[in-house]
Design a protein around this nucleic acid. Sequence first.
DNA 1: GGATAATCGAGACGGTACGTCAGGTCTTAGA
DNA 2: TCTAAGACCTGACGTACCGTCTCGATTATCC
Lengths: 209, 209, 209, 209
Amino acid sequence: MTDHPIPVRPGRKRSEESRLAILAAAIELVGEVGYAGLTIEGIAARSGAGKQTIYRWWPSKADVLLDALATKADLHVPIPDEGSYTADLRAFLTASFRLGRDQRVADALRALMAHAQIDEEFRGRFRSSFLQRRRDALGIILDRARTRGELPPVPSPGTAADLVFGVIWYRMLATSQPVDENLIDELVTTLTEPRPAVGTSTPAARKGT
Amino acid sequence: MTDHPIPVRPGRKRSEESRLAILAAAIELVGEVGYAGLTIEGIAARSGAGKQTIYRWWPSKADVLLDALATKADLHVPIPDEGSYTADLRAFLTASFRLGRDQRVADALRALMAHAQIDEEFRGRFRSSFLQRRRDALGIILDRARTRGELPPVPSPGTAADLVFGVIWYRMLATSQPVDENLIDELVTTLTEPRPAVGTSTPAARKGT
Amino acid sequence: MTDHPIPVRPGRKRSEESRLAILAAAIELVGEVGYAGLTIEGIAARSGAGKQTIYRWWPSKADVLLDALATKADLHVPIPDEGSYTADLRAFLTASFRLGRDQRVADALRALMAHAQIDEEFRGRFRSSFLQRRRDALGIILDRARTRGELPPVPSPGTAADLVFGVIWYRMLATSQPVDENLIDELVTTLTEPRPAVGTSTPAARKGT
Amino acid sequence: MTDHPIPVRPGRKRSEESRLAILAAAIELVGEVGYAGLTIEGIAARSGAGKQTIYRWWPSKADVLLDALATKADLHVPIPDEGSYTADLRAFLTASFRLGRDQRVADALRALMAHAQIDEEFRGRFRSSFLQRRRDALGIILDRARTRGELPPVPSPGTAADLVFGVIWYRMLATSQPVDENLIDELVTTLTEPRPAVGTSTPAARKGT
DNA sequence: GGATAATCGAGACGGTACGTCAGGTCTTAGA
DNA sequence: TCTAAGACCTGACGTACCGTCTCGATTATCC
């Protein structure tokens, strides 16, 4: 997001000190005043940086926060390899849920998801630098399971990922329930249990059972 | 949201004409300039109302939009009673997906969900007047299925609802995939298939089948 | 400058309190920090008004100051009628010089003249609402003298006015000399001395002497 | 203003190329965007110089412009010696007026005079390096006339100079009238015509004539 | 019917933050 | 050690909306 492709340039170098102060101020402030109360002006004041320095490197307060989150909290989830789909999935969910249990991080993520709905350009950046990255991680687990033949025919891998991330985000955004151990069990069971392919037995056929 | 509990009062009556003009202006404007560009000032100007008239009846632009949506689009989903869990679920999903397919409505809902993340007070109103209402509708279907013994042991009814709404919202908020017929099939299959109790049969044991 | 030709308008009335507070703040601040240090932001802060309120009624800080000066200091010089050109001119100069002797007013006028050189639109307003007004006053005196036959043929009335205002402004802008009683005498003498009728001795004819 | 007192110094020599590029850019820009739109940043960009290079050698944009003007336009007026006060004065005025007739130069001079009102330090530099220099030129002419006995008793030489420069500057700053041949005639007549010393005939005594 | 009361459109008010611009300083790499 | 480049902090700009507060005009209810 803030890379300099050609590192050999004249002129003063970007101040790493300023960069870190800005990110730290953003994290602090969002905790104190909430995302709505977070302003570029406030971040500049708290960090001791000039507003222009922020505008030079980040296009919006959401980008600052996303960068801060990526720098501070470890947003990337390692791809587990436990030997079986069930175990991999369980490990992935455990790691993902741990992230969401930190209220600070959860609040910030909710805010970023919210901002992504409103700011079209940020939506792309948020997707590719956060959402898609985590989707890819789960995708690798699912691919591995498919080659091993551990994957039930329904739901399809894509839908399975949507179900997993869907339920996590829905709980964060729409309810106050935290994601807990129980949910992991239910998700693992729901997504690993073998079931017939769609269409082989129509809903109508199964109605009587 | 905008009810007057004691209708016998002196003074001029609330102008229904203004109310409708405001809601119409809100819908129009959000389509033209997006939610971020939607302002109370703009709604007032477009509708020919005074700003105070809006502030008198709605606490925020999100509330105006929610009201407008409830008035224009039919946000409430009828609770189907087709005789079986499978059929009821399918009917519910079909009705729900139809709503989300209207881009205008979907955009507005995304914006409201976003606003709910940022405005604490609106969050409560949005949950109780929209999210909870639809959750309750699905809850009735699930309850009925449970008493009929049609419900698989996993996931629990609460989690099942989270899965359903989770995947719908996740697709709206995080991906560009529309919700389609295919997803209905997968959801119905995933949530209706009878399965053994958790843990009795491991995925590994069933690998060969 | 800020008149409302149609006094019957809907909406809240302009706040006279704010207007006066703004003008007072402008006068105070220009005395404290000088014209270069005077800012709209500062005037707003000092007066307790919002910036928008200032921008609503005055197009620039120079206009605020001009208005303040016109309201506070009495910028208009009464047109004397002492019975003779000499006496009128002396009275006019005395009144004009008194204005320039107040350092506060003189500084502000210098600044406004300076601003007029840089801001094309303000130049017009400054000329018509200050410079031209005072030129007209002197013009009346000169006209009266001409009808009485008291006016020397050279310089012409227009040039006479330019000489009077020119020397005053030049001393204010380019030198540190104050305008004093002595200058009045010299100006009166230079502009009133009776000389032969026009044409009897042309400038060309006198060239050789 | 931009002198290098010790030409033998270690390090890279001052780039004459840069200096000329900066002055040229200043002249160009002030013509294109006006004095208000003229910025150090803009001059640096146009000239291909760094901002620091400008700040190193000139204290303000006005100084750059003054330097540019002195380098480009010939601001100094030669002191004529035509043998008589009348002829000298006429020659001086003709030369001075020629300068003000070049719109480019006139605009720049107006802007510098304006800047001098606002920037205290520049005021001193502008006076001594421009205003005083021209005043001295006229002073020599007047002195010569006095020793020759050609000078009328009123106005005094100092006031005469103020009248001359006052009317020129007043026309440039306050009116749109150009300085023309006619004004030369009037000024020469007004300042050469012999008249009694101030006080020998009081205004009251002359009232009846 | 006249007082009282709530509404309406309009628009000015004190504010906050925006995103931009330029100022003047400082740091880098290269000549 | 000077140069061009460019990042830095500072501070003001002019704008957009916010939510509140008069205004005068318009309905309504109640006495």
